[in-house]
Design a protein around this nucleic acid. Structure first.
Lengths: 152, 152
DNA sequence: ATTGATTATTTCAAGTTTAAACCATTAAAA
DNA sequence: TTTTAATGGTTTAAACTTGAAATAATCAAT
């Protein structure tokens, strides 16, 4: 697995960390994603559903920013969620450029059932690490994530 | 940022770890990806180039497995790399189903120049964490990654 | 030696994502 | 007030990815 060894200690450390980060993230995503798709939602669709379920109504721009996805992509995701009756778009009355997105009743109940199972699955997968390790990992990832955000 | 708080300590821990993992990985990928694309290669193309540069000639299947990407996708990536003269495909003589992929001279020099810059960039980004933190993070991610792989 | 199963790779269609161009609306400035 | 700039959202074309079907070559068993 050691594919990089000739760039100096510091560089090797960074490179191998990056590889492991990408791998763990992809694998985790695949496993949970497969699960989500078995409920008839795509991963990004579920992401938006979850966001609305936890945070309440949001406008398109906020959804895009939070889900780290392009605006154009959010439009498509919302189109599909709307088509399936999970969300509805409401043109804002005070600033008519904005559109507020909110869950329908169907969207809400779907969110609750799926999220429950999703949470169980994620917990089961995470149990590869002890709780203490999960906490340490979270702390480090948070520091990394926030630090990178500043470099953007 | 605390969007989930009502599912029990264990579940919340797992969920928040997963969110941070995805975020850090995506952000890191975006930043390095932007860089790579400025050299005229897509991220997956660079991934294959790097793999061949570090490991030497490989067949399509191994590339797919290592890069966590579908075989069909590898075919496309190789098509494009070949079109640009970075790699060549050689039908294996002992098992004629297999195709060995190797860097051309152009591919090799391109790999070396780009990878050098890439490594510098990754190191710079990783410096958001101290070296000791990077090491701890690597260790945890490795354990997580390997553990998840078994659950697949 | 021939049939059947397996393996390596490619092709194809469908779905996703992105960046850029494009409307529509609002805010700011002349 | 009219023009100009900025903001929110959608559309579009191009690229990428996937999973499944198709092709080709090898292996195993009769």
């Amino acid at each position: 697995m050691k594919t990089t060894e000739h760039y100096g200690k510091k560089v090797d450390l960074a490179l191998s960390m990056w590889v492991k980060l990408a791998r763990a993230s992809t694998t985790f995503g695949r496993l949970t994603g497969r699960d989500i798709e078995s409920y008839g939602l795509t991963q990004p669709q579920f992401g938006v559903l979850e966001m609305l379920g936890h945070l309440g109504p949001l406008n398109t721009g906020k959804i895009a920013k939070r889900s780290l996805v392009t605006g154009g992509c959010v439009t498509v995701i919302l189109d599909n969620l709307e088509k399936d009756g999970f969300i509805e778009r409401i043109r804002s009355s005070d600033d008519r450029r904005m559109i507020t997105v909110q869950l329908t009743h169907k969207g809400h109940t779907t969110f609750q059932t799926i999220f429950q199972k999703h949470a169980t699955r994620v917990t089961e997968l995470a149990s590869v690490l002890t709780e203490e390790e999960q906490l340490r990992l979270s702390t480090l990832l948070k520091k990394l994530g926030l630090g990178l955000k500043e470099k953007q």
